[in-house]
Every structure is written in C-alpha cells, then in structure tokens.
Simulated scan of single mutants.
Amino acid sequence: MNSILNHSTELLILIFLVITYIMSIIDKLSDWKGTILFLKSHFKNTFVLPLLPVTLVIILILELLTTVFCSLGIFEIITEKTTYFSLLGSVFSCLVLLLFLLGQRIAKDFEGARHITIYFTVSVFAVYLFQHHF
C-alpha cells in the first residue's frame, strides 16, 4: 500500500495513458469502416490518403505497445519499484502523439493539433518523471 501512495502521481499518469489508448484502440476496432471513412474525408486532399489503411494498422500497433508498456509499468512500480516499462510506455505515447500531430498538421486541422498538446504534455511529463525517478 505504501508503494501505491508513494508513487500515486506516476500510477495516475500511467492509468490515464492506459485508459486513453485502450479507448482509442477500441474505438478504431469497433468501427473500422467508420474510422477509415472519417480518415479518408479528413485527409482527402493530402498525400496521406493512399497510405491510410497501412498507417492505421501501424498506429494501432503503436497504441497497443503503449498500452502494454504502461500497464506493465503500473505492475512494475507496485511490485518492483522500477520504471523501465513506464518509461517505454511514456516514450511510445509521445511517438504516437507526434504522429497524430503530424497528421493533423498535414490535414490542416489546427484545432485538432492543439488538442493533442494536452495529451502530449502529460506524456512528456511522464517521460521526465520516469527518467529521473527511483
């Protein structure tokens, strides 16, 4: 119990990231056709359009890796008091969000790009925290 209380900030950030990416994965997989249709509309006048299905699979894999690493990080902090997987999950989260940001900028969706900043801030803070912790 002390481990949980002593590392509540780290655990809450990891839980936040796990929820974020699990929901993103579920949303994409539960409505694959809708997701593709939305993305085709979103990127209709860009060079990204022909790459959408492959890009979406890559994003899903990266989101899954992020979720797995952050989940392992929760377990790792509680049981072993280390942050290797937490750091990996946080770095992967930053990479995914940078890809999202790039996509929003390519689509000229500046409002969408601005919203990514919120998640990116949490992820970068997590990287900082896990690099300088324990």
Rank of each mutant, 00 (worst) to 15 (best):
N2R: 08
I4C: 04
N6R: 15
H7Q: 13
H7P: 11
S8D: 01
S8C: 06
T9M: 09
L12K: 03
L12M: 14
L12W: 12
L14N: 06
I19V: 14
I19Y: 12
Y21M: 03
M23F: 09
M23K: 13
M23D: 08
I25A: 00
I25S: 01
I25T: 05
I26R: 06
I26A: 12
D27S: 13
K28P: 00
L29C: 11
D31G: 07
D31R: 10
W32F: 12
K33M: 06
G34T: 07
G34R: 14
L37Y: 12
F38K: 13
L39P: 06
K40Y: 08
K40R: 15
S41A: 11
S41R: 15
F43V: 12
T46K: 08
T46D: 02
T46C: 10
F47L: 13
P50K: 03
L51E: 11
L52D: 05
V54K: 12
V54P: 00
V54G: 10
T55S: 15
L56I: 09
L56W: 00
V57K: 14
I58W: 04
I59S: 02
I59T: 05
L60A: 04
L60D: 01
I61Q: 00
L62F: 10
L64E: 01
L65H: 03
T67K: 00
C70V: 05
S71Y: 07
G73L: 00
I74F: 07
F75C: 05
E76T: 04
I77Y: 08
I77K: 11
I78V: 15
T79K: 11
E80I: 06
K81Y: 04
K81V: 11
T82R: 01
T82N: 09
T83V: 13
Y84E: 13
F85Q: 11
S86C: 09
S86E: 03
L88M: 14
G89F: 05
G89I: 02
C94D: 05
L95M: 13
L95P: 04
L98R: 04
L101E: 12
L101F: 15
L101M: 14
L102W: 14
G103F: 09
Q104D: 14
R105V: 12
R105M: 15
R105S: 09
I106R: 09
K108P: 01
K108H: 13
D109G: 03
E111M: 08
G112Q: 07
G112S: 12
A113S: 14
A113V: 08
R114T: 15
R114K: 15
H115S: 14
I116P: 05
T117H: 04
T117L: 15
I118P: 00
Y119I: 06
Y119P: 02
T121K: 01
V122D: 03
F125W: 09
A126V: 07
V127Y: 03
L129W: 05
L129C: 01
Q131S: 14
Q131L: 15
Q131K: 07
H133Y: 10
H133K: 11
F134L: 11
